[in-house]
Design a protein around this nucleic acid. Structure first.
Length: 645
RNA sequence: GCUGCUGUAGCUCAGUGGUAGAGCACUCCCUUGGUAAGGGAGAGGUCGACAGUUCAAUCCUGUCCAGCAGCACCA
């Protein structure tokens, strides 16, 4: 006699075992029709699942957000059936739901192309229209393996083979077609609906391992209704418009060309943005008691061998040699070993700790060609790098200080929210398990003390220590790790860094590797997308354009521009003989935050007509007032804070 | 690096086995116009690179390079 508790708190009892279908029907015909799946004690299951003991049940209808994941998962099954119907020689592998949609990985001689999409989509619509029930069956493990092997579905057979012994082998059947699947599923293929679209094909390694064969993956997006689908497609279009590569070209910020793959030619305006950001970061570091240093670009391989980088990253390092000298140098891929050299120079005292050594370190890494992405993932980049040499006891406090500094910087730059991931020991690593226990323990404690909440990211730490990753999201929804904090007991050991303690003995410092922006290049890319190129005044590469209406106002326009320039603003003058409409349009499209329009009237009265990007209103004010207001507004947020206090 | 796709003017893109076009941008001329495109003329391209097939290749084939999407990688 199971008692079923519903979300509103009401309880219904049934005689013997009962399915969701029956419960829904007992509540009402409307729900019976709408309920596509259910959650039993919070766990999503098929609506046909039999319940034999007391439970709380929540039905999932098309209106629920929860329905999305199931619609997407089911769409993957429908996709797989459609593909096998059209190309029976294709082997199926896996097909999960993902953010915004689903994919399915197939094994096939000839990969799919987008030209195949219309046929596949049509077949999918047929399958959906057929409204075939999803039927769950539990099979014997060996029988299932034999079945898939006989069908030539080697990948599926392997999947079953590798499932833990305790796991039930469940099969979902939709008409003639079936797939190994944990479930749950909706009632029928019809529940998938028609708000789906195949998006792209891609290669993907079997089980995500590059040593395995490559499969052909079809990505799709699926939604509850057409309106949601259209909204999603529109979002993608909008996101594309704020792609940093596109805006970088449109605003003439930078370019990349074949002769320097993965490296950036910063144009005047992009470099302005870069230096403004760098100046800001330098001030932040000074306020937080970092000392800035500068270390060499080319360093003998001996140092990289000592640090362990040569062993692990040799393939990704740029090597330089000269004919007259029998030496191998490497373009530094990171700054840490160099900073240790400075730390080691002379005797260090415990009184100097924590010693925070910062560098805007230019690094080069030979990144795989397929990893390159605009200015976000490049081969030549500059980190806002720092290493904090400290004692065990100081880790927590330094972590707290760092997170506070990072949060302030992100907030100043327009990012109120970011995610934190805690990555622990990877498979290949340096240092003993004891050392790792200690490092992970220290970092965890530090997070607790600093009040940092994080997601757990197992096995993704650096080879020398665990790390916190601070992640921002770009316009297209891709995550980018920017900030990082890493606890390292290994490098100080390997490179023999030490300080004299209170007891006048030598001790090993701990090294905290940390960055806030990560790299200027990546961060500027994210900034561009965050603001869609419409930067706040202090970051804008061109802050003001003075545009004349008639040539009689040209001299005055130049005077206004000169005055603003003298006040430290980035100004351009537009005295061309174009109509003011054309000038407004051009500079608005160029995303200039402020346009000052001057005609005869303004010239006579020594005023300006100020127009803001994105608005149509104009404000008439005296030249002096305009200069004062804009100068104040163009202050960097940290300077503005100081000025206020 | 792997799979697939792409590479024509500064940008967005047409196009053809007989050495190329449009719009915008650019230059010049006319226009002096009050808040998102005034008009006219002109200039601009080894059709990504190198081979091959062909009487003839920007177009067909191959190799390479670069870009894009995804995967893998990311100290």
């Amino acid at each position: 006699m199971p008692a079923i508790t519903l979300p509103d708190g009401s309880v219904r009892t049934f005689d013997g075992t009962v399915t969701g279908t029956t419960i829904a029907a007992s509540i009402g015909p409307g729900l019976a029709k709408a309920a596509m799946a259910m959650e039993v004690d919070g766990k999503p299951v098929d609506i046909s699942t039999e319940i034999s003991s007391d439970a709380s049940v929540k039905f999932v209808t098309r209106k629920d957000e929860d329905a999305l994941e199931m619609i997407r998962h089911d769409a993957a099954h429908v996709l797989a059936e459609a593909v096998q119907a059209l190309w029976p020689e294709t082997q199926v592998t896996i097909g999960p739901s993902i953010k915004d949609g689903f994919y399915y990985d197939f094994s096939r001689e000839k990969p799919f192309t987008p030209e195949d999409f219309p046929a596949i989509e049509e077949k999918m619509r047929e399958i959906v229209a057929a409204n075939t029930p999803f039927v769950r069956e539990v099979w014997d493990r060996d029988e299932a393996i034999r079945f898939f092997e006989e069908k030539g579905e080697d990948f599926k057979a392997q999947l079953i083979q590798d499932l833990p012994e305790t796991e039930q082998i469940s099969i979902y059947r939709q008409g003639e077609w079936l797939d190994l699947c944990r479930g749950p599923h909706l009632r029928t293929t019809g529940d998938v609906g028609t708000a789906f679209k195949l998006m792209r094909v891609a290669g993907a390694y079997w089980r995500g391992d590059h040593r395995n064969p490559m499969l052909t993956r079809i990505y799709g997006t699926a939604w509850r209704d057409k309106k949601e689908l259209d909204a999603h497609l529109l979002r993608l279009e909008e996101a594309e418009k704020r792609d940093h590569r596109r805006i970088g070209r449109e605003m003439d910020l930078f370019h990349i060309q074949e002769e320097a793959v993965g490296q950036i030619f910063w144009h005047r305006k992009g470099w302005r943005l870069y230096t403004v950001l760098q100046d800001y970061m330098r001030r932040a570091q000074e306020r937080n008691n970092y000392e800035e240093v500068r270390t060499p670009q080319l360093v003998d391989r001996a140092l990289w061998e000592a640090s362990g980088h040569w062993d692990k990253y040799r393939e990704n390092m740029f090597i330089a040699t000269v004919e007259d000298e029998d030496k191998t140098l490497a373009l530094k891929p990171m700054n840490c070993p160099c900073h240790v050299q400075i730390f080691r120079h002379g005797l260090r005292s415990y009184r100097e700790l924590p010693l925070r050594m910062a560098e805007f370190g230019a690094c080069h890494r030979y990144e795989p060609s397929g990893a390159l992405h605009g200015i976000m993932r490049v081969r030549g980049f500059t980190q806002d790098d720092a290493h904090i040499f400290c004692t065990d006891d100081q880790i927590a406090d330094e972590t707290a200080k760092f997170v506070k500094m990072l949060a302030e910087v992100y907030s100043d730059l327009g990012f109120e929210s970011f995610r934190v991931k805690f990555s622990d020991r990877p498979e290949t690593r340096a240092g003993s398990d004891e050392v790792w226990d200690r490092a992970e323990g220290s970092l965890k404690t530090a997070c607790e003390i600093a009040g940092v909440e994080y997601e757990y990211n197992p096995g993704e730490g650096a080879f020398y220590g665990p790390k916190l990753e601070f992640v921002l999201t770009d316009a297209i929804g891709r995550d980018w790790q920017c900030g990082t904090l890493q606890v390292d007991y290994v490098l100080p050991e390997r490179l023999d860094a030490s300080y004299i303690g209170e007891d006048s003995n030598r001790h090993r410092p701990v090294m905290l590797h940390r960055a806030i922006l990560g790299s200027f290049e990546r961060f500027i890319g994210i900034l561009i997308e965050q603001y869609a190129g419409k930067f706040p005044l202090w970051l804008a590469p061109t802050q003001v354009v003075v545009a004349s209406i008639v040539s009689d106002a040209g001299d005055y326009a130049n005077e206004v521009a000169a005055t603003l320039k003298a006040a430290g603003l980035q100004v351009e003058t537009d005295t061309r003989s174009d109509k003011i409409n054309a000038k407004i349009r051009e500079h608005s499209l160029a995303r200039v935050p402020v346009i000052l329009v001057v005609g005869r009237r303004e010239a006579e009265e020594r005023k300006v007509a100020m127009r803001r990007l994105g608005g149509a209103a104009q404000e008439i004010l005296s030249l002096d007032d305009a200069v004062a207001a804009l100068t104040k507004e163009a202050q960097a947020p940290d300077i503005a804070r100081f000025a206020k206090d």
